[in-house]
Simulated assay, not measured.
Amino acid sequence: MLMQFGFTQYESQVYHALITTDQPLDATAIVRRSGVPRSKVYEVLHRMGEKGVILESTMEKKRLYTALSLDSMIEKLETDFEKNVQKLKDTKIKETPMDDRVWTLKEDKSIQALVKRLVKRAERSVSISGWADDIVILLPLLEDKYKAGLNVTIHVIGELKTIIPTVSTLIPDIQHANLERSRILIVDESEMIFAGIENSEWQAIRTHSRPLVKFFTEFFYHDVALTEITRKYKDTIMQDKDIRDILLKLRY
């Protein structure tokens, strides 16, 4: 219950045991309900008391415990989170100068956060490719960049409503069996991110390497060209089995 908020497994088990009963418990009852070893329970209870997530009382020489209410716990977690975020914001940072090395990054939310940060930093141009439900998250920022005079080009899979005129839209159908979820971002023609799914997990590369930036820029416009050719000549293409089979094997 609480492990995702930085609590240990034993602390989470003890809190769950206390919050799911309507009466205070002593250590013996907590051991029985939580599964925490007796040798560890007092240490765990002490830490939780220091963290302010359980209440303690002594009655007839017996130490009793109850949980901080769920509403109060949620408020505490939110307050602690906001305080920690502010500390993080106040940290004096020194960014590592970027070079031609290729950097890898995992985890979808981290990749999305990096993509958003690089779009914010863009000064001249943004080229971005991805699925509509990904790009729509960035759309207000992309439209602000367009309004500021930047050259913004979007290749999107799925419907996307935007004021940006340079949008190439592919509406997938059942014949696009090889379409894979991915993202390409090229900023100021000098930095790029490519992200895709491998073994069900998002992974990305980021680099300033000029050959790679050039390669992925061409790759981006390869996708745009394929989309426009397919859209304009779809009926003709789909009637020619050889051409259709080749095109549908290509990545958009």
Rank of each mutant, 00 (worst) to 15 (best):
Met1Ile: 07
Met1Lys: 09
Leu2Phe: 07
Leu2Thr: 06
Gln4Glu: 14
Gly6Met: 12
Phe7His: 06
Thr8His: 05
Thr8Gly: 15
Gln13His: 03
Val14Asp: 00
His16Tyr: 05
Asp22Tyr: 10
Gln23Ile: 14
Pro24Gly: 06
Ala27Gln: 15
Ala27Lys: 11
Ala29Cys: 02
Ala29Arg: 07
Ala29Asp: 02
Ile30Asp: 01
Ser34Met: 02
Tyr42Arg: 11
Glu43Val: 11
Glu43Gln: 08
Val44Lys: 02
Arg47Pro: 00
Arg47Tyr: 09
Met48Tyr: 01
Lys51Tyr: 09
Val53Asp: 06
Ile54Phe: 09
Thr66Trp: 11
Ala67Met: 03
Leu70Arg: 07
Leu77His: 08
Glu78Met: 07
Glu82Ile: 14
Lys83Trp: 04
Gln86Asn: 11
Lys87Tyr: 13
Lys87Leu: 14
Leu88Val: 05
Lys89His: 08
Lys94His: 04
Glu95Pro: 00
Pro97Gly: 04
Arg101Ala: 13
Val102Ala: 06
Val102Asp: 14
Trp103Ile: 11
Leu105Ser: 03
Glu107Cys: 04
Gln112Ala: 12
Ala113Leu: 10
Lys116His: 04
Arg117Ala: 07
Val119Asp: 06
Ala122His: 11
Arg124His: 11
Val126Ile: 15
Ile128Gln: 05
Gly130Asp: 05
Val136Cys: 08
Leu141Ile: 15
Tyr146Arg: 07
Ala148His: 01
Leu150Asn: 10
Leu150Glu: 12
His155Tyr: 05
Leu160Val: 01
Lys161Ala: 09
Ile164Glu: 03
Ile164Tyr: 07
Thr166Ser: 10
Thr169Pro: 01
Leu170Thr: 00
Ile171Leu: 15
Asp173Cys: 06
Gln175Thr: 11
His176Ser: 11
Ala177Met: 08
Ala177Thr: 06
Ser182Leu: 12
Ser182Lys: 05
Arg183Leu: 14
Ile186Gly: 00
Val187Asp: 07
Glu191Arg: 13
Gly196Phe: 00
Glu201Val: 02
Ile205Lys: 01
Arg206Val: 02
His208Thr: 11
His208Gln: 13
Ser209Arg: 06
Ser209Trp: 02
Val213Gly: 07
Thr217Phe: 05
Tyr221Cys: 02
Asp223Thr: 07
Ala225Gly: 11
Leu226Lys: 05
Leu226Arg: 07
Thr230Tyr: 13
Lys232Asp: 13
Tyr233Ala: 14
Lys234Tyr: 12
Asp235Gly: 14
Ile237Met: 08
Met238Thr: 09
Met238Arg: 13
Lys241Asn: 06
Asp242Ser: 05
Ile243Asp: 02
Leu248Gln: 06
